[in-house]
Design a protein around this nucleic acid. Structure first.
Lengths: 110, 110
DNA sequence: ATTATTTATCGTAATATTGCAATATAACGA
DNA sequence: TCGTTATATTGCAATATTACGATAAATAAT
């Protein structure tokens, strides 16, 4: 037990769950927001932005990278991270789809 | 250790992270999709839809409920669950905001 | 009242996540 | 080459999540 039974669900359900799970942590939310804010890819100061220890930040960055949400380019001694727009768009499309289907719902018992 | 350091982040960051975390599991994705699909609130057959054991489904429902994503009404011996549209809208607004900010990004090094 | 049905809770085992100190790696400049 | 800087990896402790059997609680029907 303990581990998620991914074989019981569709590929799409597992993919969306994995993407959402990668964002579903305040530190990773903060990282994404910072990457969006700076509007440039020269970003070696994410560690300074967060109050977490450097290995912890590095670990969160790796999770975002594994999920495909960010990409990283080695840029001399620093590393340039940026958000992968297509993955964000994928999440947006999914959530918008759910939301619009709820708009058309007729029954409202709750 | 082991627990998330929520005090290092803003209320909004923690709230969004909690909402996303509640959805970020294939079983809970499947539950939400089913609730959206049936377009009615008389839904006591979620357990039959998923292949998971009844206590497991009940636990996932409780997590969705705790996050405020679904509401439940006692309906005789069954319970009528439905999605809370406002919470989905909140997530949609957040993701759309990130997405649109990325659209306006000028620098594209990665 | 008794029984069947439906959902919730408890307890527990297996696994995953979070965070960090210590250490490693990699690239640059003197 | 050596030191400096930036990031990654390892190892580990604390905590959280996932899943389910057993059981409880609540209501409906007989």
């Amino acid at each position: 037990m303990g581990s998620t039974k991914t074989d019981l669900f569709s590929t799409e359900q597992n993919e969306i769950a994995a993407l959402l799970k990668a964002i579903a942590h305040p530190a990773r939310i903060a990282i994404l927001e910072y990457l969006v804010k700076v509007d440039t890819c020269i970003c070696g100061d994410i560690v300074n932005e967060l109050t977490l220890a450097q290995p912890t930040v590095s670990q969160h960055l790796r999770e975002l990278k594994n999920a495909g949400l960010i990409k990283g380019n080695v840029e001399g001694t620093a590393i340039c991270y940026c958000v992968d727009q297509s993955k964000i768009a994928r999440i947006q499309a999914y959530v918008s789809d759910i939301s619009s289907k709820l708009d058309h719902k007729t029954d409202q018992c709750c």
